[in-house]
Design a protein around this nucleic acid. Structure first.
Lengths: 128, 128
DNA sequence: CGTAGTCGTTTACACATGTAAACAGCTAAG
DNA sequence: CTTAGCTGTTTACATGTGTAAACGACTACG
């Protein structure tokens, strides 16, 4: 084990868009990834290739050879990424407590009727 | 009005630490800010001065002359910053909906008993 | 009156990020 | 066989960020 712990390296905004494409469907080739993201963000294929390389370097994306080219797949679960990022925000802005975040969203009218209903349901489940 | 809309410029991680100091108490001099943050992050006064300048440039911090030096105060409300950042996260990771964020926190055991109780109370209030 | 300390400002420099062109290798079509 | 078209890799360059030293102005102590 030369490489053991490997705390998750930070994924940038642009890189994140690429990850989303791969989380949605994988494995994909570089140009397939581009097809999925390039119109939205108006990137060139070159840009996507750079981002993919960087993600591979960070081990956030893994490759598998397919003939002469590569197929790219996520190297980390979306769950895990979302977890780290949410935790980061809650720690930085709400002292690590989730309730103040919730309070803030409520106060900012960021909660729809549906949100409220769903959260209520989840709460009920948590107490069972 | 030369300058009207001014969408909030991004505040970096290090800058954020300085903002927290000023949100906690203001106005402060540069070295007072340093006193509050420099041990935690082991920064030099020089670093704090740089961060303050950048924040002033971004208009996230405002200055008021006090004799020969400046007193620094937040130029944006913490509320507002927290709002933007929370929104960013919810948009990027949860499709703009708050319920999935909540679901995620619940599933990741990031909710304490107290959180749950508080959220329940808030929900009750929302429905009144 | 010099000089040590304290301000804010300028300059510095390495690394991250956004964005992409250039290049080298290979394959498929003429 | 040449060449157009894909690959992935290398190189590029501007801007942002973390971190700080250097500098110039001023004040207060000796």
């Amino acid at each position: 084990m030369v490489d053991a712990p490997q705390q998750p390296e930070r994924i940038s905004d642009a890189e994140h868009a690429v990850m989303e494409a791969l989380w949605d469907r994988a494995p994909l080739t570089a140009s397939e990834v581009c097809d999925k993201v390039c119109d939205e963000r108006s990137w060139s294929l070159a840009t996507v290739k750079t981002l993919l390389s960087r993600l591979v370097a960070k081990r956030a994306v893994v490759t598998e050879p397919d003939g002469k080219r590569f197929l790219y797949s996520p190297g980390i679960a979306r769950e895990s990424y979302v977890g780290t990022e949410s935790r980061r925000l809650v720690d930085r802005l709400f002292g690590g407590r989730a309730a103040p975040l919730f309070a803030h969203l409520a106060q900012a009218d960021a909660l729809t009727e549906d949100d409220i209903a769903e959260i209520e349901a989840l709460l009920k489940e948590l107490k069972s």
